[in-house]
Design a binder for these strands. Structure first.
Lengths: 157, 157
DNA sequence: CAGTATCCTGAACGATACTG
DNA sequence: CAGTATCGTTCAGGATACTG
């Protein structure tokens, strides 16, 4: 939408998604949203970016359906706004967690990061992985890429 | 390394990883590598980017340990070079596949993309997901973020 | 074939000031 | 508190020409 070429966007959902969340501050906003941050001023203090950039990114994320801006008013106060993650944002969590864990493993000296992800229900550690239709783990070395394209019958050219 | 601020890099593996693979062409190079492309000229034709940019990105990816540049010589020919994905690159596959599938679901009109990912061994469809220590699927709504930080004893301030 | 070398443009970002 | 407005810088990327 903002940077990647039309050709790349047309052909590649990876590029399309990255053109949305790959900008410098966008991913950090999402991270903070999942940490429970909801208000403009709190983002501003935590991220230490310019208000113009923050405003622009929040707008992009909202328009893309990743955040929802809701107004609320506590009794006796004036209206405030919250930015809350949508279902689409939650569905990005495997990607965000995968990015975090890859960086922890490959880009830090100690091989671990400052936070862990756990299941609320069970308390067990959680990681991003590949699974098949039955929920069974699959090794990343065991992948094949299959074009689906315009449907064809079985024995095509 | 190239764009994100030091503060962001220090604190956030998500930002660090994205500063590496988040640039416009980098992710497309990785995609093509997993499609089996290995040579400079083939990347150039498929990506339609400038050779300077391609050269720079291949260098960055090689230095970051995601690609390995190997020379080979077929009998009677001069030396050629291949760029092959390393283990670290393979470990990024869950992220790449997650990005692709999120884009397929949320950024296309039809809700599906041009390729599917399948297990070579079983032929079953594969997707990126969150699993716990025992390999059981966990819902992205069921996450908690737990600081590990400098270790402390149980009942800290 | 596999790159380097240059020049140029656009836009993302930082800093700062201002407003309802 | 929650932004908008403006200005200047930097840098990724496009186009093109050149080289071993």
């Amino acid at each position: 939408m903002m940077n990647a070429t039309a050709s790349a966007l047309r052909q590649c959902s990876i590029a399309a998604t990255l053109s949305l969340i790959g900008e410098k501050w966008t991913i950090l906003i999402l991270r903070d949203v999942f940490h429970g941050v909801t208000r403009f001023d709190d983002f501003l203090r935590r991220l230490e970016c310019s208000p113009a950039v923050l405003s622009a990114r929040l707008k992009t994320l909202t328009e893309a359906g990743l955040l929802r801006k809701v107004g609320y008013r506590e009794p006796g106060e004036r209206e405030r706004f919250e930015y809350r993650p949508t279902r689409a944002a939650v569905e990005l969590l495997p990607v965000l967690i995968g990015l975090m864990q890859w960086g922890d493993s490959h880009m830090t000296s100690c091989g671990e990061g400052p936070v862990q992800i756990r299941s609320q229900a069970s308390g067990k550690l959680v990681r991003a992985a590949l699974v098949d239709e039955d929920g069974e783990l699959v090794s990343p070395r065991d992948m094949q890429i299959v074009p689906v394209g315009p449907r064809r019958t079985e024995g095509e050219p």
